[in-house]
């Protein structure tokens, strides 16, 4: 089916460019540098940042936001470093992901990736404690990912039993790491998320 531009959202590119990090989207001249240097593309062939950018420029909002490949980016910055037009692809994709997350929150979209859950869990922990608290993060993330607390705990054990023991033995999961950190300036962190995150 041909792509009918009049059915697309020509404002989508402006929406992305309005996000922090998305500003340089339109500089892209589709040279393939990002895609060819991307370590993910080797493993997930469907993932093509170049194409996501052109789809965004054309205004294929729905297709871009629901694209599961959005969530496999590592933010390794290879694309950004090499991009001859300074498109800052990693940041652009991050901007698109944020739009998608907002759309999901608004109930307009279902994201088929646990990544937003993980990111959100991470941010919650951060808000709560001011620093990363591994156990707290896992306890929040897994149940959300798996849909229930029990399933989540099972999955967590599967993923982390060996690793946890290994770390414990080596003294890397000692008492200090088991206890939640408590940064004194937690209230400020909370404020930051509140004031900066909801623009």
């Amino acid at each position: 089916m041909p792509i009918k531009t009049w059915e697309l959202d020509p404002n989508f590119k402006n929406e992305i460019m309005g996000e922090a990090g998305g500003e340089r989207l339109a500089s892209c001249f589709q040279c393939s540098t990002c895609t060819l240097g991307c370590p993910i593309t080797e493993i997930v062939p469907s993932y093509n940042p170049r194409k996501i950018i052109q789809m965004s420029l054309l205004g294929m909002r729905k297709e871009v936001l629901s694209n599961p490949d959005l969530w496999v980016c590592l933010i390794c910055q290879t694309c950004t470093a090499r991009c001859p037009q300074d498109v800052r692809i990693a940041d652009v994709l991050s901007a698109i992901r944020r739009i998608a997350e907002r759309e999901e929150e608004a109930g307009n979209l279902k994201i088929d990736s646990p990544r937003p859950l993980f990111d959100k869990a991470f941010q919650h922990q951060l808000e709560k404690y001011g620093r990363l608290y591994d156990i707290g993060l896992a306890k929040e993330y897994y149940p959300k990912k798996e849909g229930s607390f029990i399933k989540g705990m099972k999955a967590m054990m599967k993923d982390y039993k060996d690793f946890g023991m290994r770390m414990f033995k080596k003294g890397k999961m000692g008492p200090k790491a088991m206890l939640a950190p408590k940064v004194k300036g937690r209230a400020v962190i909370k404020k930051i998320f509140k004031e900066m995150g909801e623009e």
């Binding site: 941010q123 620093r131 900066m196």
Partner: peptide, 23 residues
């Protein structure tokens, strides 16, 4: 003293990252 997390790779919004690290 009393440093907080930098935001790691999970805080995607640059403005939040800037704020976290401003502290």
């Amino acid at each position: 003293e009393d440093w907080n997390c930098c935001g790691a790779a999970e805080v995607e919004d640059p403005k939040v990252v800037y704020a976290l690290n401003a502290r």
